[in-house]
């Protein structure tokens, strides 16, 4: 299955790549959606997912081009190949959407997420938390006598793994940004 690159205004894209394999396997895809930075645009995107019953596993959004008035929404979603194709096509239909890229199929990409963990504990547990944080290259961004706040960036799996380790050591609060992703190379 290949990508549906919906670049508005292009007259040449082939509809051949709209051919999905109708399979039942649920796949996880990371989509990068370039949108007009205007009020309501996020509601349009989220409304599409809720209205049509698609999954959002993670979503991040920020302006990336002030002059061009563009924001980039990175969405991690899951579905069968047919559903993923539908999601992309439906996103492409939103008038404020400029481009839809499926980073999962358009070639290698890098994904990163930032998270903050508050861990509270004393004695051995506190020492162990600090030692593991070091191994995971997490930074201490705040500390009291009984708590640490760690900051960690990495692929979502790495952050999951770190969370698993911190849980028995007194993890009390987590904040995660959701995935930001870019294709590799040019």
């Amino acid at each position: 299955m290949s990508a549906l690159k919906l670049k508005k205004g292009s007259t040449s894209h082939s509809a051949y790549n709209l051919r999905p394999t109708f399979s039942d396997v649920v796949e996880k895809h990371t989509l990068a959606v370039l949108v007009e930075n205007e009020p309501g645009v996020l509601a349009r995107v989220i409304g599409l997912f809720s209205g049509r019953g698609y999954n959002i596993e993670s979503l991040t959004v920020a302006e990336v081009d002030h002059q061009g008035h563009l924001s980039r929404i990175t969405i991690v979603t899951a579905g069968t190949p047919q559903v993923i194709e539908q999601i992309k096509a439906q996103l492409g239909r939103i008038v404020s959407v400029h481009e839809v890229h499926d980073l999962t199929v358009e070639g290698p990409s890098v994904e990163r997420e930032l998270a903050m963990f508050k861990v509270s504990g004393k004695g051995d547990k506190r020492v162990e938390a600090l030692r593991l944080a070091d191994i995971f290259r997490a930074n201490v961004v705040d500390s009291t006598l009984e708590t640490f706040v760690f900051e960690i960036t990495g692929a979502p799996e790495k952050i999951d793994a770190f969370a698993d380790l911190m849980r028995p050591l007194g993890l009390t609060e987590v904040a995660r940004t959701g995935v930001a992703a870019l294709p590799r190379g040019d």
Binding site: L4, L6, H13, A15, Y16, L18, R19, P20, F22, Q82, E85, Q86, A89, Q90, G92, R93
Partner: peptide, 17 residues
Amino acid sequence: IDPSSINKVIKADIPIV
């Protein structure tokens, strides 16, 4: 004319947008 209509319900063997 709407790419999202294609393959939404029925798989198209020859899709033309």
